[in-house]
Computed example of a mutant assay.
Amino acid sequence: MADDRMPLTVGQAAERLGVTVRTLHHWDAEGVACPSERSGTGYRLYTGADLERLERVVIYRELGLGLDAVRALLDDPTVDAVAALREQNAQLEARIRHLRDLHGSVQRMIEAHERGILMPPEQQKRVFGTGWDPSWPAQARARWGDTPQWRQYAERAASRSPSEWSGLSQESRELDDALARAVREGTLPGNPRANDLVERHRALLSQYFPLTRQMQVCLGRLYESDPGFAGHYDSQQPGLASWFHESIDANARAHGVDPDTAEWE
């Protein structure tokens, strides 16, 4: 550290080391790293040897050592410096592993926010079936990407494994089959069986984001009015989209929700 510009003032030393002047004053007061010289006007001055000691203090502090431990490493001949540093190195490696894991989690969350499902298109088709269109998550993001529900969906999707997606897909298919069967067998909206299916639907979607009954009513409207959703349900059983909408509304009324005024909340 020594050069032709030695000794250095406190400000110059702080700038060289990337710490604050206040920090150097504190280390001086604690007897951890004190300036060896004074100027003619009484200002503290750090020599080359002082800067070398300060450099070691900075490293030890970045490793997480307290000032007492730093002072012991620098001044106590009975302290096993190598053992102490090995321990700190082990802790540092653990922190690095943790940060790598955290970095991976953040990356997955970013990708989930952008893509919706973190699987390649071909894997999506294997998991969700041949009728699945891998462009649907992008369409959903374009439609709902600025909502809290999409953020909740993405955060959950970031940690969801292919087998978990497969389980959700199986639940969806089973629910579609049960809905279609209810219509074929003449189940009326508001009937206990229809209400159970509506509640089953709400529980299933709540695995993606919390779904209130008001929000479910809004989805019911969409299921009947949107050609994509209506086409999906009516392909399971003609008239299913309208029946499901009516059943959702009937169940909502049974729980004190007015479908005519329900909003996405």
Rank of each mutant, 00 (worst) to 15 (best):
W264S: 03
D76F: 09
Y208D: 07
H245D: 14
D101S: 11
Q91L: 15
Q123D: 14
Q139S: 12
R71C: 07
G48N: 03
L175I: 04
E30Q: 14
G18T: 08
E199H: 10
L8I: 08
Q236R: 13
V106T: 09
A250H: 06
L222F: 11
R213I: 13
G104T: 07
L54C: 03
S247R: 00
P259V: 03
Q207C: 06
F244T: 01
A250S: 10
H26L: 14
N191W: 07
A157K: 00
A84K: 05
G66T: 05
P259W: 03
L74W: 05
S247Y: 03
D76K: 10
E164T: 08
G40V: 08
L67V: 08
P238K: 08
Q214S: 15
Y208L: 15
E199I: 01
H98W: 14
A33L: 10
N251W: 13
Q12T: 03
P162C: 07
N89F: 12
S105N: 12
M215R: 12
D76R: 09
G129P: 01
A262E: 04
M6G: 05
R126P: 02
D80L: 08
W243L: 09
S161C: 06
A180S: 08
R221C: 11
P134D: 04
A33T: 08
S39W: 05
A254H: 11
L188N: 06
